[in-house]
Amino acid sequence: MNVPINKLTMIGTGLSALLILLAAFSPWLAPLDPLDQSFIAANQGPTAEHWFGTDSFGRDVLSRVLFGGRISLAIGILAPVLSALAGVWAGMLAGYLGGWTDRVLSRASDLLMSFPTLLLGVMIAAALGPSFQSAVIAIAVALFPRFVRLSRSATQVVRREPFIDASIAAGRGHLSIMLHHVLPNIAGPLVVALSLWIATAIRLEAALSFLGLGAQPPTPSWGNMIRDGMSDLVGDPWPAAFAGAAITLAVLAFNMVGDALRDLLDPETAA
């Protein structure tokens, strides 16, 4: 292992941790109530009082960015984790058992893959009514087939290893084998994928909120702040700019963690 990996890991992990902490402690960190309207102080650029300026309702943008992080990161982390819990098992079953199980699960995930991710989100959100939960479900469903594919192909490789057959011969149950032999062997690429897909999920959340389908107003999320900011982009670009910067930073941080993890697992191709 060489120095650049450590550096990247440290920066990425540090940045991710910092953002999560900022979001978690936003009620104590935010200088003002993110919902407090004040039309006299609306559409101000950054000032000494409002570091990130105010939006068209006169709400403090810094406070909204901090609170928005709670929603955006919560959805961004929760959805892929839920998706991984379901998808990894489905993929392992498909890869391990093969046959009909494999065919049905693969066809189902191919089917889901053939929907454009965003449109799937739009339809789920419209059917369930847009909310925090629908956003989580929509993103989890969208990522599900990707976890299935990944864990399926990784399992197929492990399945061919002699020790699996040895375990079967020794009379161990399939579930036990999958849990004790398959899962630990495919965990590496899955953890990498998880951190990269957290980054994807944050972007997706932003896109869904941008289309008006994520967390509901007045609760800020980074995506809906950009959406609201879009209305007056010429006059007051600050809310959209800061929210966009926050999304970029968060996605960057998780991508860096993912990259670093990947390099750890596969030092040959690493920098």
Binding site: A206, T248, D259
Partner: peptide
């Protein structure tokens, strides 16, 4: 590559 991946397309 990192930046390309991190900048949301609509932004």
């Amino acid at each position: 590559a990192l930046i390309g991946f991190s900048l949301p397309d609509f932004y």
